[in-house]
Design a protein around this nucleic acid. Structure first.
Length: 157
DNA sequence: GCCAACGTTGGC
DNA sequence: GCCAACGTTGGC
């Protein structure tokens, strides 16, 4: 199976790439995605070994700040059944879970983040899902070429 | 099934 | 803080 490429958004005030680096094994579960399109990707598409662009959103400098690797494939998000969690979903049936997640492990923190503005400056990245008007998906597919371009850009900055 | 109202996302 | 864009909810 060939690996696939994704971009995952997070608000750094909630969970930043430095927080990821501080986890045991630099690994975390990506809980709390409550959007069906993203759910379908987490449940059906994203597999162990896939690569991830780690993106900081809703902050001063929106940017891809590093990369990660998927280290556990789609499985039901346990927080949907936890009454005390803010991600608790009373409508989710444990025998047919509504929400899924994956685990990711830090690969690299870019020395220099690749900002949203820099992504927009690259003609070859024009078609990135992230850059499309109104695009809000918090887990989204990335083409291999786009992934490679962003990594290369980070190294050149 | 339509669609208005509402809530959220996220750049600026 | 503003607001455009999008997703979800729920009455009909």
């Amino acid at each position: 199976m060939t690996i696939k490429y994704w971009l995952m958004k997070t608000e750094p005030t909630t969970f930043s790439i430095d927080d990821l680096a501080a986890q045991v094994d630099q690994t975390t579960c990506w809980e709390g995605v409550r959007n069906y399109q993203a759910r379908n990707l987490l449940r059906d598409e994203i597999e162990v070994g896939d690569r991830v662009l780690f993106y900081h959103s809703a902050c001063k400098q929106p940017a891809v700040v590093g990369t990660a690797v998927v280290c556990k494939g789609g499985y039901p998000d346990p927080f949907q059944f936890d009454r005390k969690s803010k991600y608790f979903d009373p409508k989710s049936d444990p025998s047919n879970p509504r929400w899924y997640l994956v685990d990711i492990k830090l690969e690299r923190i870019f020395d220099t983040p690749v900002t949203l503005a820099q992504l927009r400056d690259r003609a070859s990245l024009k078609e990135m899902v992230l850059l499309q008007k109104g695009s809000r998906l918090s887990v989204q597919p990335v083409r291999k070429k786009e992934f490679d371009t962003v990594v290369k850009l980070a190294k050149s900055l």
